[in-house]
Every structure is written in C-alpha cells, then in structure tokens.
Design a protein around this nucleic acid. Structure first.
Lengths: 134, 134
DNA sequence: GTAATCCTTGGAGTTAACTCTAAGTCAAGA
DNA sequence: TCTTGACTTAGAGTTAACTCCAAGGATTAC
C-alpha cells in the first residue's frame, strides 16, 4: 500500500529528481514520510501525480497546478474556483488544438510541395507551377 | 519593399529583441543590411518568419528550425531531408493533438464532477456517488 | 541644429522546469 | 560485519527561449 520514490519513478516515467522537485515546489503536499524520513507514496498520491501530468501535458505551468493543489487542500469552499479553473483550461486546450490543426494543414501543404519537388529535382520549379495555378 | 525591425515586430507580434535573437541564432540568414548597418526585412523574410512561427508553435525547438533553414540555404540537394523532416513533424503534431484530446476528455470529466460538487456543496459526496455507479 | 525616436552591438540577466552533485543515512543480504 | 543499493538534504548547474541594458549611431520633425 506504499511506494518508494524509486518505484513511483518507474511507474510514472518521471525521475526521482523530478518527483522531489515537485514536492519541493508544493505539488505533492500529501505525501507521508516514514520514521526514518523516507517518502511513502500512496495510491492517492499516484492519482494526484496523474492529474498533475494531465495538466502539465496540456500546457499548464507548475505555478497554476500548484494553485489547484492548494485550493484542493483548502476543501469545499474553493469548489467554484477549481471549476472555473478547469473550464478556462478546457478553453485553452481547445485553442491549442485548433492552432495545431491549422498549422498541421500548412505542414501538409508543404509536404505536398516537397514531394513534387523531390520528383522534379527542384523546389523552384514547383513553386512556379503553384504561382501559375492562381 | 523593405521593413525596419520595428515594423516587422508590429506585423508579427514578436519583439525587436526576439527578432535580433532569432537572427543571432541563425534563423534569419537572408536579411540584408543597409549601408549604415540597419536591418531591412523583405516580404520573403516575412514568409520565413511565418514558417518559423508555424514550426515553433507546433513544438519544434529553434535548433530543429535552424536545421531546416540551413538545409534550405543549401539548395535542392537537401530536398529529401526537408521532406522527411516535415513528414516526421506532421507525425509529432498528430501525436500531440491525440494526447491533447485525451487529456481534454479527462478535464471535461472533472468539469462534470465539479459542477455537481458545486451544486451539492461537497466534492466528497459526488465522488461517493461515482463509486456507487460502478 | 537639436530633440525625439528609431536603429546598432555585445553581453548580462531572467524564467521555467528540470537535472545533478556531494555528503551522508538506513535496511537487507552474504 | 560489511557491502550494496536505495534513500535523504541543500544547493549548484543546465537548457531553451527569451529579455533587457548600456552606450552609442542615424534619421526625421520642427
């Protein structure tokens, strides 16, 4: 029912350094320590790490994640704040996805150009053809 | 037909600092300078900036962008390399989008929980209901 | 002609998020 | 008991991508 920092590192793919860094940064305030000072991670701590990863991977800075953790520790009086945070973050993710899609289209267009350019042996020729089309 | 660094900054939303930093980093090797040493940006330079932004916004590090610029300067003998780079980058973008979508689902689930929690006034109660459902 | 506003450079400083080092503690196995 | 390996801490170092500063040169507005 308890995991060492090394076991958690293996489970999560984070390094022990990173886990300690997260704790020092205030992202993991719930972790218990054994009598000899060794961190003992619980399954709940793994859940916290999982949501931290989710927020981090979608572009939330550690500062923002810490805010969420702090609110969680304060209990039900911060429910609205947390809800608003998630709603705003969802909008940010939507924006990010939309921008990625847009840029992806551009990359795909480039791929088309370069495929033809490789065939012809010249990018300039392909660009001239493009200009004529218009 | 030429723009000063300040005009380009306004057009692109980048700062003059960033533009000089990009030039120093080798991302803008085509920019001319006037007799008195002032940078004169052409429309083509703006196109380069635009593709640089596209690659940067989709997560390519400046190092990778510089590689692409360097290949471009080498001419048609690097066409295959550039094509491969774009194809790989497209795959990276696809992965990124897929992960964002997955994490977005999770955030949306959280939003659902928190909406109910705000109504009820307790997150714990909502989580217990969830557990019962299963 | 002079003040304001641009531009130049080299180099230092900042921020986020790690990443590592040194020196030491602790528990289990041969 | 001795060694091995995982753990502890404080604090220094790294990387990417800016961001800023000081000191000075060129251009334009009046």
């Amino acid at each position: 029912m308890g995991y060492s920092i090394g076991q958690v590192a293996k489970k999560t793919g984070l390094t022990t350094h990173t886990l300690r860094f997260y704790e020092k940064s205030g992202l993991l305030p719930f972790i218990k320590k054994s009598s000899s000072g060794v961190r003992v991670f619980s399954d709940e701590d793994l859940n916290w790490l999982s949501i931290i990863e989710c927020l981090k991977d979608t572009g939330m800075p550690l500062k923002g994640i810490k805010q969420y953790i702090d609110w969680s520790a304060e209990g039900d009086k911060t429910l609205e704040k947390r809800l608003k945070m998630f709603e705003q973050h969802k909008l940010d993710i939507d924006k990010k996805i939309a921008q990625l899609e847009k840029n992806k289209n551009r990359i795909e267009y480039k791929i088309g150009l370069y495929k033809r350019a490789v065939k012809v042996g010249s990018l300039e020729k392909v660009l001239q053809e493009e200009r004529c089309k218009k």
